[in-house]
Amino acid sequence: MKRRFICLSFVILTACFAQAGQNTNHPEIDPDEAYKNNCMRCHAATQQYSPRMTKTIIMHMRVRANLPEDVAQAILEYLNGKSEAVRPVAKPPKSGGNQARQGGK
């Protein structure tokens, strides 16, 4: 009985979280900020791949790092160079402390 209660709680909690995000108005996300605010939470540096490989890696990271969908999309844009903010590829970030887009995933 106790276990069933725990399982039920998990599932209800999950459904609540799933529902919560639907009704929140979130401002448009800056790809450059999305990359620095999320990827660098764990990675000291990231490597560049082809756009289609990057899509796969973003799917992987979306699951592993629990990234919201719009944030994952913004990071994909950043890494695939669609954003104006990422044109100067070799430039290190002004803030956040870590070197961008070299070495490591």
């Binding site: 998990f10 599932v11 909690l13 999950t14 979280f17 799933a18 919560a20 995000g21 929140t24 108005n25 979130h26 401002p27 699951v63 629990n66 990234l67 919201p68 944030v71």
Partner: peptide, 16 residues
């Protein structure tokens, strides 16, 4: 597992 924007500046994540 997943995550949601709770407010403009706050996200909540979960994994069970």
């Amino acid at each position: 597992r997943g995550s949601a924007h709770a407010t403009k500046d706050l996200d909540v994540t979960y994994a069970t």
